[in-house]
């Protein structure tokens, strides 16, 4: 089934959209990722991921009210959907489960 798998960048963008609630839009997401994760992305890449996530049903969007910025153009505001939230939870859960299975000894570096 296409689209249920969540890529690494997709996960990052999905999280950022959640963080920025309720003001997540293209440039905002891009800035936030740079600030939080230190990854510099091109705006077009962000758009591509956002559209893809919307197609997969993890995000929904609406147009904002026009403001004076951007020459009066509206922004597309992205919001997490229920399935988006579930996808994040699943990923998170799986990470934790996996992490917890690492033997303690493997994480004790002082012996090396």
């Amino acid at each position: 089934m296409k689209g249920t798998y969540l890529g690494e960048l997709e996960e990052l963008v999905l999280l950022t959209v959640g963080i920025l609630y309720p003001e997540a839009y293209g440039v905002g997401v891009m800035d936030e990722i740079e600030k939080q994760a230190g990854r510099s992305l091109n705006i077009s890449a962000v758009h591509a991921v956002l559209t893809r996530l919307e197609e997969k049903g993890f995000l929904k969007s609406k147009m904002s009210e026009p403001t004076e910025e951007r020459g009066g153009r509206r922004k597309r505001i992205f919001l997490l959907t229920a399935s988006g939230k579930r996808a994040l939870e699943e990923v998170n859960e799986m990470r934790n489960t996996l992490f917890n299975q690492i033997p303690r000894i493997a994480l004790q570096f002082q012996h090396i």
């Binding site: 839009y25 293209g26 440039v27 705006i43 758009h47 147009m63 910025e69 951007r70 020459g71 153009r73 509206r74 922004k75 597309r76």
Partner: peptide, 13 residues
Amino acid sequence: LEEIQGDVYELFE
């Protein structure tokens, strides 16, 4: 067009 142009303009400004 509107959102893309908006984003590009915002970055430009």
